[in-house]
């Protein structure tokens, strides 16, 4: 019973985003850093680095969908707005690729459109994108 009450409280807390409104940097620390590490470099062979890929991916339509659909982003507890702000913060602060002139910020509507489409083969999708970027 106590557990049920606790779950209700948690549900109530997560239903009010204002109570947990963090800066994109702190959202990165709380939602992403555990695996991608503080600088986004990840863990060789286990957790992909975002440093050299996020910005090039963001220049391609399918790349933008990919970064929203990867499990960690799509399934996070962040709102669409916070997720878009987080991706834009990462592009500016963790990328070792400078923002190209044509870079467009991620928007909440864009996140909402793609995050509900599951990405079953993440590794394969990433490999295809890396090929597209290299071309």
């Amino acid at each position: 019973m106590r557990q049920a009450t606790a779950w209700l409280l948690i549900a109530a807390a997560s239903a009010s985003p204002a109570a947990l409104a963090y800066t994109p940097q702190v959202n990165f620390q709380l939602q992403c850093m555990g695996c991608h590490r503080l600088d986004g470099s990840g863990e060789e062979g286990r957790v992909p680095s975002v440093r050299s890929t996020l910005v090039p991916f963001a220049m391609l339509a399918e790349g933008r969908e990919y970064v929203i659909r990867v499990p960690g982003v799509a399934q996070s507890t962040l709102s669409d707005e916070d997720t878009a702000a987080l991706l834009n913060w990462m592009a500016r602060h963790l990328s070792n690729v400078p923002l190209p002139a044509g870079f467009a910020d991620f928007t909440a509507a864009e996140v909402a459109r793609s995050r509900h489409q599951p990405l079953p083969a993440v590794k394969e999708a990433r490999a295809r994108l890396l090929e597209s970027v290299a071309r």
Binding site: V26, Q29, L30, M33, G34, C35, R37, E43, R46, V47
Partner: peptide
């Protein structure tokens, strides 16, 4: 290298901290 991250309230200064 990978870890779980949480937040804890520091009663000393009343702030929440991100803890790894």
């Amino acid at each position: 290298a990978v870890t779980w991250i949480g937040t804890c309230h520091n009663p000393g200064d009343g702030k929440d901290y991100v803890i790894s």
